[in-house]
Each structure stands twice: as C-alpha cells, then as structure tokens.
Amino acid sequence: MSTEIADKNRDEFDIEILNTVGKPFIDKPEDIKMATRDCDVFYGDKQAIFGVDLDIGKNEIIAMIGPSGCGKSTYLRALNRMNDTIEICRVSGSLTLDGQDIYSKKQDPVLLRARVGMVFQKPNPFPKSIYDNVAYGARLHGLVSNKADLDDLVEASLTKAGLFKEVKDNLQKPGTGLSGGQQQRLCIARTIAVDPEVILMDEPTSALDPIATAIIEELMDELRHNYTIAIVTHSMQQAARISQRTAYFHLGKLVEVNATNDVFTNPEHQLTENYITGRFG
C-alpha cells in the first residue's frame, strides 16, 4: 500500500465519532431484550468501550461489525459477564436483561450465563463424548431429573442444532473427533440445551469453511424464532445475510446502528461507509 493511500485512510480513520447515528434504540419497551446505556469497559487504565447505548430486541439477530480491535467482542462479552474472569477488566454504565441490571450485586453471574449463552470463535467442545457435551449444562443446573428426559433433551438440542442426523449413532464418541463445522454445531447444541434466552456468538464461523458456515447461518435463522441472537462477525456478507439490525463499532465507540439493509445500502455515517466499501478494516 502506497503512503498516499495510507495517509488518506488515516484521515478517514480519524473522523471524530461524536454520537451514535441511526436507530440504536427500540421504540416499544416490550420488544427490548437487553439494553445498555453509557456502557464503558476498561482493561486496567485502558478504556476499550466508550459509552455504548444500544438496545437488543427480542427474537432478532443483531450483527456487530467493525475492524479488529474495535471492541465488539469486548462489548459482547460484557453482556454475559464473561469479562469477570479477567481481573483487570471493569465495566460501568447500565446493562440490563429484561430490565434488570446484570451487573448489580443481586445478579448472580452463574444464573446470568445460564440465561445468556455464548458460542465462541474457535469450536471448543469438552474432551468428552458428544452426549456428555450436550448434557453438561443440563446436568450442571439440574434441569432434568432422569435419564430418559436427559436423552430427550440431548436429542432435541442436537436436532435443533442440525447435528442429530449426523451423530445419532455415535453419541458416545468424543466431541473433539468431529469436523470443525460439526464441532461448532455441537457447541451451539450444548448452549441451546441450557435453554438460554439470549445467545451471544463471537465470530462463530470464522474458523469454518463456506459450507459449514452456510449450515450454521441457516441454523441461526431458525433459532431466531426462539432466541435473541447477538453475533460478532468479520464477514459483512454474513452480517447482511443473517441479521435484522447491524451495529458498526469503531475504536471502542458505537458509530451506527440501523436495519441491516440500510447499513449496507445507505450508511449514514462516513466511517460506516468507508468500512463497508472496504476502504479500511
């Protein structure tokens, strides 16, 4: 890349973000599943997220896009307090689930994570059998009382994740022996088995080939009817294909939130336009 273009990019990069443009809020309060107001996240002295205001609606897929290091994963992890495990990480502002503050003292992080499940970038099945992987959460929380119910739950979860047909004869085989795409679907089945209300997905298909990606995208579209899904993705095509709303993050700030169609066809903010047209990122 010549210096000229690099300089130009830097200029485009340096546009000041004053306020989030577009429609970060949802009008009807009964449609809101999660809401954050003035959310800041710090790693030690370094601030990673600056005053994010955003509503996540019920039964919608909201995609979060933006260049690497823009804080979208950090924001996602703040939504189910996965950041708690990082000692130097601090979250401030208001983050609510069904109107309840998830960072209040009364909120139990274990209960929260049972309600807000997470699927990670790299498929991470436990080194146990497929069955035990799916049954893990249910056993952990005591969701079922007998073996037959557990069998049913495992089957239902695997079916919902579109994996049951492929593994029904090998439920006792290790989950780590599956292919990458199957492993990720196993991880989704494992998350569904706990019956969460919100599923957070942190680049769930970035390690997968296009075919596996397509299967998972289809799956997400079906899951939308029962769950709220927030997905972080680097693929703008993916965001365009699956999400109803898209949020664009830049340098820790939420730049623009709009209906996905609008973001990709008619972005309001200059930075969003620069990003989706591939001028940087």
């Binding site: 495990t85 049972a114 991470n124 952990l140």
Partner: peptide, 18 residues
Amino acid sequence: VPPSMREAALGLGASKVQ
C-alpha cells in the same frame, strides 16, 4: 489447559470451582 475450555464451561453457567 486451553483457556477456551474454561470459557466453554463458564459460558454454560458453571461456577469457577466447577
């Protein structure tokens, strides 16, 4: 032990000790 294993368990709602 890969951190992804801890995340997987925590993400499903296991406590730290579990």
